[in-house]
């Protein structure tokens, strides 16, 4: 610290730091103005389509704003108070959490298994299978929803196959039954996005040097021991990133769920995005403020849950380390 201070140039100490910084900024702006000019479209776009809607939704959450009015009236926390007592909001919140908790591990785990198989030297037609698994990723979510509505209804091939094989007694509407609609949505979502997570895992597996596998083999490690003690520890950093990406994706399921189940029947598969859409656009009198409050409250609660999870993991790790 002392050494650093003593080496500070004399010229730099002659003006207050804030003014120095200000002059530096102005000079850089003047000299490299074209850099900022090229950045401008991105800054404007990000500001207009990300920052502004984010801030605006927070402001709207405090308004009583029927959809047909040009502006709302400030009502403080009234929308949030109503939400706290709205059973359908909590139903949608719960459904979103169930979706997240089941779908993300399923997608990450299945994709890892497939990646290990498709990364193995002995697997034939690897390129073909990779393409096959990736195809649903490039298919529009809404189209997938419509197609699976037909595949999963009582006269569709899935139901008829299960009846034919004796697994169920009578045809079932998987996407239109209150007991199965959410899980049908989860299954279709995992199927649709498995390919992209598979690509992440394949890329991650490529980073592990071949020599490590060979060393494990020479040491006599079997396939499972090699995976558990060599491959998996090296994949942990990727696991964190991939899980994070898939978690964010699990909150963006509107197109698929809206076309597959529409949130029904009886709100059984209504995730928070459909709740927001229904409140904002499909209510008898559209409630923009209330819908914004739902989005804000869901965001806040999700962050709180994530923080609680992080604290819990830290505590658990601490205890494990201590013992």
């Amino acid at each position: 610290m002392t050494t650093t201070s003593s080496r500070a140039p004399a010229a730099a100490t002659s003006a207050p730091p804030s003014r120095r910084r200000g002059r530096g900024w102005a000079r850089r702006l003047r000299q490299d103005w074209w850099i900022y000019l090229f950045l401008l479209p991105t800054i404007v776009g990000y500001g207009a389509y990300t920052i502004y809607p984010l801030l605006a939704s927070w402001w709207y959450a405090f308004l009583d704003w029927p959809g047909f009015a040009t502006a709302g009236t400030f009502i403080g926390f009234e929308n949030f108070e109503r939400l706290i007592g709205d059973d359908l909001f909590w139903n949608a919140f719960w459904n979103s959490l169930v979706f997240l908790v089941i779908a993300v591990p399923l997608r990450v785990g299945l994709a890892l298994l497939l990646a290990l198989v498709l990364n193995a030297k002995r697997t034939p037609f690897k390129g073909f299978f990779r393409t096959l698994f990736f195809l649903p990723v490039v298919t529009t979510g809404a189209i997938v929803g419509v197609v699976f509505t037909l595949l999963l209804d009582a006269s569709g091939p899935v139901s008829l196959s299960l009846v034919w094989s004796g697994l169920i007694d009578s045809p079932a509407n998987f996407a239109a039954d209150a007991g199965t609609s959410l899980y049908a949505g989860i299954a279709v979502w995992v199927w649709k996005w498995l390919g992209i997570t598979l690509i992440y895992w394949l890329a991650a597996l490529q980073t592990i040097p071949q020599g490590v596998h060979e060393a494990a083999m020479i040491d006599g490690a079997g396939a499972w021991a090699e995976f558990r003690h060599v491959t998996m520890p090296l994949l942990v950093p990727f696991l964190v990133i991939i899980t994070l990406i898939d978690t964010v994706a699990a909150f963006n399921v509107f197109d698929l769920m809206q076309t597959l189940t529409g949130g029904g029947p009886s709100f059984s598969s209504e995730v928070i995005e459909i709740f927001i859409f229904r409140t904002a656009f499909q209510a008898n009198v559209p409630q923009l403020g209330y819908a914004s409050a739902a989005a804000v409250l869901f965001g806040v609660l999700t962050v709180l849950l994530a923080l609680a999870q992080a604290v819990g993991m830290r505590w658990a790790r601490g205890r494990m380390g201590g013992s």
């Binding site: 047909f68 009015a69 656009f281 008898n284 559209p286």
Partner: peptide
């Protein structure tokens, strides 16, 4: 698609 909003409400707005 505007729900059950009465035309009078829209006229008034």
């Amino acid at each position: 698609g505007l729900g059950d909003v009465a035309a009078a409400a829209l006229v008034s707005e």
